[in-house]
Design a protein around this nucleic acid. Structure first.
Lengths: 236, 236
DNA sequence: AAGCAGATGATCGTATACAATTCATTCGGC
DNA sequence: GCCGAATGAATTGTATACGATCATCTGCTT
C-alpha cells in the first residue's frame, strides 16, 4: 500500500461541516456582513446551519483561534471588536512579514502567476467602478486576495495561513476604524507593486509594499470607540 | 464604569480546563515526552485528565490549529509528524520574521529586559552542563524561551503568538530530523545576539539571528523518514 | 421614586448516548 | 497456501441532556 504516509497535514478535502460553518462565518465577517461586536450564539449558529450546538461551538472556537471572534466565558461568542492597540499590532505584523513574503514570492514567481495577478487587479478595478452592496463586498475580498495570492506564490503554507489571518483581521479593523468610504486599499498601489516585481526591482517592490500598508493604516482613526456595550450593537 | 469595554480579546485568565489540557499536551510535545506520530485518542486524553471526550476533543482541535497535532478524519489525532518540506517552511518562516521581531524588540527593550534575558542564558547554560532527562527537557524549553522572550519584548501579541507556534513546531522538527545529540541551538549564539543588542548594533544582531537559525537548520537531516505507519510508532 | 433582592429565562459548560466509520481478524473460496 | 469478503471491536462524528452561570425583570423596602 502506498498510502500510510502523509498523515501529517491530513486534509482529505472538505473535512467536515464544521469547516463549512467556520468558512461561511469567516467570509461573512471579512465581507462585513457581520459587524464587530455582533453576538454569535451557539444556538443561532447551529440552527442557521442545521447542526447541533456541538458543531456550532466547534466552529466558533476555531474562529476565536484566528482572532475573528472573541469568546467570553459563560457569555458567548461575538464578532471580534479589535482595540486600537490590537489594530496597530495587526498592521505592525503586516509590515513585518509582507516584505519578506514579497521577496520569497518574487523569487518563485512565474509568468503565469503574474498574469493571474494582473487578472485579479483587473477584476478589482472593475468592482471598484461598480455600484451596489454585492460589488462592494466582492471588492473588499478582491483587495485582500492580492496580498493572499502573493503569500500563496511564496510557497510557504505557514506564512500563507498567517497572512490569511492578518488579512481577515485587517478587514475587521478597517470596518471599525476606517474613515474614507473608499473601503479597500489603494488599488493602483497593487499594480505598482506588480510592476516593480516584473522589473526585477525587489527593493522598490518592498518599499512600495510598506508604503501601501502605511497608506491603509493612515486611513484609520484609531481612537477608542465607546465600545457600545456589545448589546446595543445589534439589539438597538 | 470602566469595564464594559474589553470584550475584545476576552481572556479573564485561566479560562477552562480545556486550556489546561491543551497546554499540558503542548508542553509534553515541546519537551519531547511525546514523539511525533504518537496517537492521541480522545478517550485516552479524556481519561488522563479526568474529563469527558468533549473536552479532550476540544483540546486536540486547538492543538491542531497550532500545527502540533494532526487530526485525520475518522481516524483520530496524532502528534504532528512534519514532513521535510514542512520543516523547511517552518524555518523559512522563522528566518522571515525573527529579524523583524528582533528589531522591534530592540527598539523597546529595557535594561531590566536585558538582565532578564541574561538570566535566562545563565539558566540555559547551567542546564546544558547537567545530566539527566529532566535537565535535558528543561534545556530544550529554555532554548526556545529565549526566542519567545524576544517576541514578548517586541510588544506585539500577534507576533508573539505566531512565534510560539513556530518555536513549538521547531521542537517537533528537531526531534524528528535533528542529528547532533546537542539538542538545542547553539547556546553561545544567544549570548552574541544579546551583546549585539546591547551594543546597539542592530544590523549585526539581525545577521547573528539569521546565522543562528541557519545553524539550527544545518543540523537537520531533512530526508523523508519512512513515516513508520503511525501505528508501529507506538504499538511496536 | 430610587435602589436592591430574589426569581425567571436564556445561554453556556460538560457529560453522556447513539450512529457512522475504520481497522483488525477470521472465515471461506480458489 | 494465499487472497478476498464478512464480521466484530474500537474509535470517531454528532446530537441531546442536564447542571451552572449570567442577564433581565419583577416586587419589595427605604
Amino acid at each position: 500500500m502506498k498510502s500510510a504516509a502523509k498523515a501529517t497535514q491530513a486534509e482529505d478535502s472538505a473535512e467536515t461541516s464544521t469547516q463549512l460553518i467556520r468558512d461561511s462565518i469567516r467570509e461573512a465577517i471579512v465581507e462585513r456582513r457581520l459587524s464587530p461586536g455582533t453576538k454569535l450564539s451557539e444556538n443561532d449558529v447551529g440552527n442557521l446551519f442545521n447542526v447541533s450546538r456541538t458543531l456550532a461551538r466547534a466552529a466558533l472556537q476555531a474562529l476565536s483561534y484566528e482572532g475573528l471572534v472573541s469568546v467570553a466565558k459563560n457569555r458567548g461568542a461575538f464578532v471580534a471588536y479589535p482595540s486600537p492597540d490590537e489594530a496597530r499590532q495587526i498592521f505592525a505584523a503586516r509590515r513585518l512579514v509582507e516584505p519578506g513574503i514579497l521577496r520569497e514570492a518574487a523569487a518563485r514567481i512565474t509568468a503565469d502567476d503574474i498574469s493571474q495577478l494582473k487578472q485579479l487587479l483587473l477584476e478589482e478595478g472593475r468592482l471598484m467602478s461598480e455600484r451596489g452592496q454585492t460589488a462592494r463586498r466582492a471588492e473588499i475580498k478582491a483587495s485582500g486576495d492580492f496580498h493572499l495570492r502573493l503569500a500563496e506564490i511564496s510557497g510557504n503554507a505557514i506564512m500563507q495561513r498567517f497572512m490569511e489571518e492578518l488579512v481577515a483581521r485587517s478587514s475587521l479593523v478597517i470596518a471599525l476604524y476606517g474613515q474614507s468610504t473608499v473601503s479597500s486599499c489603494g488599488h493602483s498601489e497593487h499594480g505598482d507593486i506588480i510592476a516593480a516585481i516584473e522589473g526585477d526591482d525587489l527593493d522598490r517592490a518592498c518599499r512600495l509594499m510598506l508604503h501601501h500598508i502605511a497608506h491603509i493604516e493612515a486611513d484609520l482613526d484609531l481612537r477608542e470607540r465607546k465600545s457600545l456595550g456589545l448589546k446595543e450593537a445589534f439589539e438597538l
